[in-house]
Design a protein around this nucleic acid. Sequence first.
DNA 1: ACTGAAAGGGTCAAAAC
DNA 2: GTTTTGACCCTTTCAGT
Lengths: 170, 170
Amino acid sequence: MDQPDTDMDVDEKDIDILKTIADTETRSPDRISEVTGIPLSTVNYRLKQLREAEVIRNDHYDIDLEALGFEITFVIQIIAGYEEDTYEPLGEKLADIDGITHVYFTAGDTDFFVIAQLSDPEMVEDLITTLERLDGVERTISTYTISTLLDGHEPLQQISRETMRDRLLD
Amino acid sequence: MDQPDTDMDVDEKDIDILKTIADTETRSPDRISEVTGIPLSTVNYRLKQLREAEVIRNDHYDIDLEALGFEITFVIQIIAGYEEDTYEPLGEKLADIDGITHVYFTAGDTDFFVIAQLSDPEMVEDLITTLERLDGVERTISTYTISTLLDGHEPLQQISRETMRDRLLD
DNA sequence: ACTGAAAGGGTCAAAAC
DNA sequence: GTTTTGACCCTTTCAGT
């Protein structure tokens, strides 16, 4: 994941705007202005800055793969072989595989945690087979997800205003 | 996660529209129409249907917590106690904790896989302490993420057009 | 499934505070 | 650095085919 060189400096107004976006699930500058009491033009001005700092990456549609028919979720742990320089390319290969939506390269016994969303048992089988055959993969542990309680699609809902203030101000 | 009663019935045009949204990272009906060659009015018509089927949940901003200052990611496995009816409420409690962005209730030795995004070591400590103290939590395994190669923010990019056709048509 | 037209908001730039 | 204004453009909706 690319990230900006330095973190954004945010203030109370930015936090208000960001929390309103997350909590009311809107992107209408008009509504944000209504809810926060910040003038519309200022909302636009701040939004522009937040976009420049890449805190807001894009305005886009929130697609629900589950509703589309990819209802099976797996958490897969991947233990890789020893070679130092196989991690990077292996991570990229993982990120390219159909159905894999998240790839975390981690410290510890497990080298990668991967999340996949699949449509049917056949697609599950295909994925596991593909993974086992990948160069550098030593072992995989696949865990079936009974239910997804929180899927990270609105991440700012998951951080309270107080935490944002405590951790981001000054 | 709520989900619609039945899956959406999609056809080639819907797949074209959805893939264009994901690949070009646009939500402009105008651009979608341009890229796919489907008349603007039809694009609008299909988009409305996709919204009604909740495949498209919302148009929203894509917020990058990392860019905001929550740069530390952990994958946390949670092993719960024995009682049957503690899972549901425990899952909900997990989803409410500050910094936790994903919660998967899983089959197997680990009961929950959780992903958290945090700002600093103090927030990490707070989270682990909170988790260990939760009723029903027997043990936690926290894994530090060295780098996030794919964060699921544009899930449809992760499914090829061929797979969509194979798995969703008929 | 597609068209055309009308209405409502969003966006951008210039300028004032 | 923030706010106002106004003009332009795109999206959305609806009645009609």
